[in-house]
Design a binder for these strands. Sequence first.
DNA 1: TATAATTTAATTGTTTCCAATTAAATTATA
DNA 2: TATAATTTAATTGGAAACAATTAAATTATA
Lengths: 146, 146
Amino acid sequence: MEAPPGEEALLLKNQLCFPLYACAREIVKRYKPFLDPLGLTYTQYLVMMVLWEKRQVTAKALGDCLLLDSGTLTPLLKKMEAKGLLTRTRSPEDERNLLVTVTASGEALKKEAASVPPKMAECAGLTPQEAGQLYRLLYKMLNNRK
Amino acid sequence: MEAPPGEEALLLKNQLCFPLYACAREIVKRYKPFLDPLGLTYTQYLVMMVLWEKRQVTAKALGDCLLLDSGTLTPLLKKMEAKGLLTRTRSPEDERNLLVTVTASGEALKKEAASVPPKMAECAGLTPQEAGQLYRLLYKMLNNRK
DNA sequence: TATAATTTAATTGTTTCCAATTAAATTATA
DNA sequence: TATAATTTAATTGGAAACAATTAAATTATA
C-alpha cells in the first residue's frame, strides 16, 4: 500500500535539498575551529582564497567567483579592510569598479591557512572517489543555472 | 611544473566545500518563486514538512530533525504562529517542552505545496541516478558528525 | 529531602545573505 | 552632443543562523 504521490514527495526524508542545506551549514561549523585561530569566518576565508590566487580583483569579479552580491560583499569587505587583510580602492580607468587588493598581512595569512584544507578533507569523511563524485554533482547543479 | 602542495589545496576551484555552500544558497533561491505564493521561506517550508508529517512535535524534536537550534527556531516559530500556521503551547507533562502543532490553515497549505517538489526536481537538473548519488553522499557527510 | 546536574527554550549580539532601491560612472544611441 | 540605457557599488530592510548566556523545569544524587 503506497502513499499518494503528492504525499511522499513532501516527506523530509525524501528531500534532496534539505541535506544539501544542512550539510552546507554543518561544514561551515566544522571549519570554525580551524578558521578561528586565523581570525577568519568561512566567507572571509573564501574571499582570501581568491585574493591569495589573484592578488587583486574587482568586487564584481569577486561576486561572480563566489556567487555573492554587493549586499553581502560591501559590508564583508569593509570589515576585512578594517582588519588589515585587504584594501578597497577605485579603479582609475573606471570609477565604478572597486579594486580589492590583498595586503602584506593578508598575504602572510596564507602560510597559516595551508594547514586548513587537509584538516577539512579529513573531517568530511568521504573517500577521494566520493569527494570527486560529490564535486562533479554539485557543479552540475550550479551550472544548471539559467 | 607543479604548484607546491599547500598552494593548490587553497585554490577555490579545488575546494569541495565551496560548491556545497554555493549550491545550498542557490537552491534556496530557486525555491523562492515556488514558495513565495505560499507565503513561506525555505526554512519555514522545512518546518511545515515536518508538521505535515507529524502534526505535532516538540521544538526540541524539530531542532533535531532540521539540525537547527533554539536561537534560530524560537523567532521562526513565533513568526509562523503569527501567520496562523501553527500553535506554540507548553507540554503539561513537562513544562520545559514547547509543543508545536499545525493549525487547520497550516494543514490546508499542504495541498498547494504538493506542486513544489516536482518543480524543484526539474530545476536541479540531475538525473534520478545522480540525485540518488548526491543524496547518499550528503547524508554520509552529515552522519560523519561526531 | 535538599542540593546539584541536566534538559529545554528563550535571549542577546554578531555575521551572513538576499531583494529591492539608489546613486554614480560609463557606454550606447537618437 | 544630449539623452537614454547599462553597469557597478552602496544602502536599506528583513530573515536566517549561530555562539554564548540565562532562566525555568525536571531529574539525579548526596
